[in-house]
Design a binder for these strands. Sequence first.
DNA 1: AATCCGACACTGC
DNA 2: GCAGTGTCGGATT
Length: 954
Amino acid sequence: MTPEQFIAKWQGSALREDQASQSHFNDLCALLDEPTPAAADPKGEWFCFERGANKTTGQRGWADVWKRGHFGWEYKGKRKDLRAAFVQLQQYALALENPPLLVVSDMETIIIRTNWTNAVSETHTVTLEELRDPRRRALLKAVLSDPDRLRPERTRQAITEDAAGKFAELAARLRARGHDPQLVAHFVNRIVFCLFADDVGLLPAGVLDSLLATTRKNPARFPDLAGRLFRAMKDPGGTLDFVEIDWFNGGLFDDDTALPLTAQDIAAVQEAARLDWGEIDPTIFGTLFERGLDPEKRGQLGAHYTDREKISLIINPVIIRPLEREWAEARARIEAIMAAVPKSGVAPAEIARRRERARTQATPIYRAFLDRLRAYRVLDPACGSGNFLYLALMAIKDIELRAGLESEALGLQRQLPEVGPEVLLGIELNAYAAELARISVWIGAIQWARRNAMPQPGNPILKPLNTIECRDAVLNPDGSVADWPKADAIVGNPPFIGDKAMIGALGEDYTARLRKAYAGRVPGAADFVCYWFEKAREQIENGATTRAGLVATNSIRGGANRRVLDRITEQGVIFDAWSDEPWTLDGAAVRVSIVCFGDGNSAGSPSLDGYTVTTIFADLSAGDFDLTTAQPLANNRAIASSGVTKKGAFNIDGDLAHAWLAAPSNPNGRSNAEVLSPWYNGEDVTGRHLNRWIINFGDMPETQATFFVQPFAHVVLHVQPARSKSGSPSERRHWWLLARRAPALFQRLDGLARFIATPEVSKHRVFVWLPKAVTPDKNLVAIARDDDTSFGILHSRFHEAWALRLGTSLEDRPRYTPTTTFETFAFPEGLTPNLPAASYAADARAIRIADAARALVAARDRWLNPPEWVEEVPDVLPHLPPRKIPRDAAAAKQLKTRTLTNLYNRRGTGEGAWLDALHADLDRAVAAAYGWPEDIATDDALAALLALNRARTG
DNA sequence: AATCCGACACTGC
DNA sequence: GCAGTGTCGGATT
């Protein structure tokens, strides 16, 4: 069909909609060279006319034409109301699986509205005449076959950020003029809400425009005129210059102050008013806005922006899926009742009578589900600006609508949606954030109604949302544990404040009262976020809620924080979790865990990191064995410990140290060598040794220390000033001494020529030998063993895997902790670190491991310090390790990248193959020592190690 | 007196 | 500016 033929046929046509629509659409397919529904999908499953039509009930389809993932298309007779056709499509969009394009046509004009959830909506109109234009035909062809070409570039997020930015600037200017920040926030919020209300038609057309236009010319009148508008909105029956204004209750308009604005400010508001406020995403807006208002108070505002994806990871398993399961059950019962009505074989009157009876029987099931939804409560006890609550409300309303559509399709009478913001319960400490939450939720409810072409909320437009409370969620003013309201589900992202930061952030008094209130339930060393977990667990225990889903830092998997998860898994279950997810917000360096838990009655298998598992353990792992049950072993006690803690500038450069070593002996006749030693930190192990030394007077009294002239003078100059201000009396008093001198460690090292060290935090779990003369910093874990067998066992993949699972992390870098990773690790029988190395010197297993370990260390050392580049020079004193000196500047430059981290970064690549081979050798030797197959799978080895641990701890 | 943490804190490109 | 990768002092136990 040519465009001319098409135009000629449809220009003159006077056919009514139901007679002509299918033939119009088929002609259009022919014109655009696209297959018709009948040709493309004869079964009518994904591309068809009258989708959703039910011959039994006589129900009309949700759309005249539908193509899955493409469009819903509704015809109206010529020049009938096309808006009504849109309403029809919007109301059924959910049933049509949310097509990205909604199209209406009266056979002369075709109007296409884009309907992507994350993008702003755009409208394209194509008239019959325009079909001569190939570009317009291409547009229509895209509707049929490639809707993505119509996807608008502007996302809701972009316009929201734009809008938030404009108001952040305005707020900053108002604050700079000395207005109270809280007042500014409140005022700017009101303007924001007016812009939104204006755009969605809740304010009489033109009121806001003329207010802005008038006051721009005469800014002095702004406080008075804007105040009059705010007052009119606040009161029932309010008017402004004889125009009735709807009633906006709900706290936002309690205070009608309008701050004075300059002409420039008003121009900025006018400019902001041009944005499409109907498309504002309240979840982004609330937070961006909040942050823009007073960047210094960001932390205090509490609410950290949680992106939609993360919120979905909680809301889906905690709220949506359980409700959908409930609906599926109800629907199945309705379906069974309705299906029992005969379609033929009896008299039509009898069929109608039976259908009516079935309806009467089935309707209460649908109504009961609606009642359930209306009585449903979601609690966010750290709601901030309300992102979780907003999305929860949207989800529940979608479920309500879906239930309505599906009931209607089954032949029941659909009820209008009634679920509103009252299903949301919130607790938020910051008054301003709480108010933002209330507004976000209302904006969301209004947007939802518009999007689905449902009736807007009536007067008052904003109801007070007293269910979003402004108070402390974990501690009452009298020091008791705070109460939470009963709710079906608890969700949220509570504030993260590490134990050591709590006093600084919350105050000493508050912290003490909080810890006292939760004594025995939350350890003092736990993060602030843990109190929400414990409180939610208590709610579940008391039957005040059934499910909870909260965000925490990934540290919740270990240490003192894990105690709250231990308690949760003892009584209930973790049914959905994400153990370690990156956080997308800039400026917040953290990785998070998402934990959804309940009373254990939830259906289905748990899901961990998106995979179905049998049980989720308290460390957010799963599998056949629970490594959190591993206990410290007596054999491993008092071997591994961290090094010294300086708390002061006790470090000196190697050159200075050597100068002091070369100086004549001191007035007490003793050499500086007694108080100087090379100092190694994590960096010195994973990178190049930085040749730093440390002044260590051990436990010397001050008078004795003064005799070591240069070192003491250095400490007086560089350490004393800062130390004298220390919070610790003992550190103040003994200012010339290291704060933690690790006496037990040095005692253990006595008699050894070297020891094993590994950095507490590092990308790769590497172990190195350090000479006894070296003082390790506390960021190094020093292991008091000097035999190659112990070294080899520790550097095997088995200990590495064990340490990864049993240790914690700093973001995604593993952390080695002596108690949980070393002390729990079962060495092979007979090679345990409580035995003197000499006792297994003749053991063939030990010798094999030692040989492999020596080969590994030697090859590594040659790579780190190739003899061609490095010269080894004996140090001035015999107990000191030889110094490694680059032969020239070029070598020095090359050596910079010869670090253990860089070397282990090459593992698994061709360049690192030699290292892989040496490690594989070592691993086989260690596996053999345990009596395992040499190629044992890591998981099997972990299970065996746990079994050994259990056996040795009884 | 020892351990272990960081809505991190640096360095270095 | 942002990859890349481990410091350092504090607070609990």
